[in-house]
């Protein structure tokens, strides 16, 4: 029983995605590994450009033209997906993986009534007829909490508010009862109240349906409240990973430490917010060895010459020569 529960729903091993520029191939993300268990929410955290959305795109088969996975494995419910044909991989994804994105205003087709969009994937996967499809659409809209769902089935996206559209978009992602939901900054463009509602909806789905969620965000304040596990990315690599409590209580990597220092806290108003000097490097110009070294206040000569070792234990680890102690460095 215990062994069953610990079988990951999604496991990514040593993923590398490369992009081309000027005829040369550059790895944009490298050595990215993580697992998600059913019913858990993994927060993938990092600044913009760190490769977190590209990681999600690789899992969703949505890599932009010119980018390709050229190393590593993606295992979904025990099945290695990168070896599948395009069509098989697409159909597997359609049943098992849902996705929600940042901008709900443009995520829906403006000229199709929403019920058609909501059930489209389910119709293709299960061959529902017209009446069954409509019933399924109603069911989905009720699950995501669209009020008076029945009378809104034939409405078009522009007749919904931003928050409602994001609910519809989540309903659309749930059409085939997926096991995994990839949520790429799903609340970034929403106001704070709507943001909280959407996050509570995701949390409810996670707990009630055992949905695994890969939650991509740059907002660490959400992590404390909603995440079970955290993975921090910097410049295309994972720098730290662990359960949310050990991570928040004692981040190991100076980068995580700095990120946490950049969140305003109500309970300690007199503490100065720290921010990180400099900008993240471009994928075409990554520094050698530790990629955070040029911006790191703790960096020593070795950080610029040797790849950082993995420190910590199985439940919470980081790649760093000079990890922070329990009280911070």
């Amino acid at each position: 029983m215990k062994a069953m529960a610990s079988t990951p729903l999604l496991s990514v091993e040593g993923l590398r995605v490369s992009g081309r520029r000027d005829g040369r191939t550059f790895p944009v993300i490298e050595e990215v590994s993580f697992e998600i268990q059913p019913g858990r929410l993994l927060a993938l955290v990092g600044e913009s450009g760190c490769g977190k959305s590209l990681t999600a795109a690789a899992i969703l088969g949505l890599l932009p033209w010119g980018f390709a996975v050229d190393r590593g494995r993606i295992i979904l419910e025990g099945q290695e997906v990168l070896g599948l044909s395009r069509t098989d991989w697409r159909c597997l994804r359609r049943r098992l993986v849902g996705a929600v994105f940042q901008n709900p205003l443009s995520a829906l087709n403006p000229s199709l009534p929403i019920w058609r969009q909501v059930v489209e994937a389910a119709q293709l996967s299960f061959g529902l007829d017209g009446r069954a499809a409509r019933a399924r659409a109603l069911e989905l809209l009720e699950i995501v909490g669209v009020p008076e769902a029945e009378s809104r089935l034939d409405d078009y996206p522009h007749q919904f508010s931003g928050g409602m559209r994001q609910r519809v978009a989540i309903g659309l992602a749930l059409a085939c009862d997926p096991r995994l939901l990839v949520a790429d900054e799903p609340t970034t463009s929403l106001d704070l109240i709507t943001q909280a509602e959407i996050l509570r909806l995701l949390q409810r789905l996670q707990h009630e349906r055992g949905l695994a969620i890969l939650f991509i965000t740059h907002d660490l304040s959400l992590v404390a409240e909603y995440a079970d596990d955290v993975l921090v990315m910097y410049a295309g690599r994972t720098v730290e990973s662990g359960g949310v409590r050990p991570f928040l209580d004692g981040p190991l990597h100076p980068y995580s430490h700095a990120l946490l220092g950049a969140i305003p806290r109500l309970e300690a108003p007199e503490v100065r917010l720290t921010d990180i000097e400099g900008v993240p490097p471009s994928p075409f110009d990554y520094p050698p060895a530790c990629r955070f070294a040029p911006r790191c206040l703790q960096a020593i000569a070795r950080c610029r010459s040797e790849d950082p070792p993995r420190v910590g234990d199985e439940g919470h680890w980081a790649y760093c020569h000079r990890p922070c102690g329990p009280e911070g460095a």
Binding site: R93, R94, G98, F101, S106
Partner: peptide, 26 residues
């Protein structure tokens, strides 16, 4: 370039279906 095309791809629709049912219409 619109996001709804990405949503359609993420739903696992075929490129043919995306072209004929979604892009063409708009």
């Amino acid at each position: 370039r619109q996001d709804y095309v990405r949503t359609a791809r993420a739903r696992g629709l075929s490129e043919w279906r995306i072209a004929t049912r979604h892009v063409l219409r708009n």
